[in-house]
């Protein structure tokens, strides 16, 4: 009976750990500066900002947001980042990309740029800027190997914090129509009792999913 209670307790503790691990807090903040809406023949391009010296917006995150915006109700046509940047070369490289809408206005006077923009049917440019940081690492795990077998023992945990800003530029009116900020945090655990069991918080994936949903609604004007 005691043995049974012990097993139950262990099971509850594991379940609690799993539920804690899957728990990610995501905050979305929307700031609208203008009216939005998109026609079926129009598209959106999502670009990562890469001007900062110590980090850069990962292209995987950019494509994750884009891919999710093409799914479900109110799906939007997305121009792949690399395809757009290559087609616009050299105007959207880290050093030459427009930082303000005034720069975009100047850029659109270049016939080759405005022609390509029309070809792609780009109505909105979304600039993604941010990164995921891992903090508060604690605990330790040691692994040993011997003639009788191998195993790991210990406990490790860390916190992931994903901060991303999405600035939406209207290519039609050449204005900034809004900013959506997302902040997702989550604690990951790695208990090891012979075998390490990773209980990873899907912080960046959650940030991507929530930001994509919000952006889709924002662009559709709902």
């Amino acid at each position: 009976m005691k043995h049974f209670l012990g097993r139950n307790r262990l099971g509850i503790a594991l379940l609690l750990l799993v539920s804690l691990a899957s728990c990610t807090t995501t905050t979305i903040d929307e700031f609208r500066q203008g009216e939005t809406g998109i026609e079926s023949h129009e598209s959106v391009v999502i670009l990562g900002r890469r001007q900062a010296s110590d980090y850069e917006t990962r292209s995987e995150f950019v494509s994750c947001v884009g891919e999710r915006m093409t799914r479900g109700e109110g799906a939007i046509s997305i121009v792949p980042e690399q395809e757009f940047v290559d087609a616009m070369f050299p105007w959207f490289e880290p050093r030459t990309a427009p930082l303000r809408t005034r720069d975009l206005e100047r850029l659109m006077t270049e016939a080759s740029v405005s022609d390509r923009m029309t070809e792609f049917g780009v109505r909105y440019i979304v600039w993604l800027d941010g990164f995921t940081e891992t903090t508060d690492r604690s605990g330790s795990i040691s692994c040993t190997i011997g003639p009788g077998g191998a195993g790991c023992f210990g406990f490790g945990s860390w916190e992931d914090d994903a901060n991303f800003d999405a600035r939406v530029w209207d290519v039609g009116s050449l204005t900034n129509v809004g900013t959506i900020s997302t902040d997702a945090t989550g604690q990951s655990y790695l208990p090891a009792f012979v075998i390490p069991i990773p209980l990873i918080a899907r912080v960046e994936a959650n940030a991507c999913s929530r930001l994509a949903t919000q952006l889709k609604e924002f662009v559709n004007g709902s």
Binding site: R50, F89, W91
Partner: peptide, 30 residues
Amino acid sequence: YGKTPVESLRSVEAAINAAAIVALRDLASS
């Protein structure tokens, strides 16, 4: 100038190549 972030499951050689390509594109644009 070219830079590329550290990514798991990517070799140092592949990362150097990626950073160099960004630098070469930067040269081409400037």
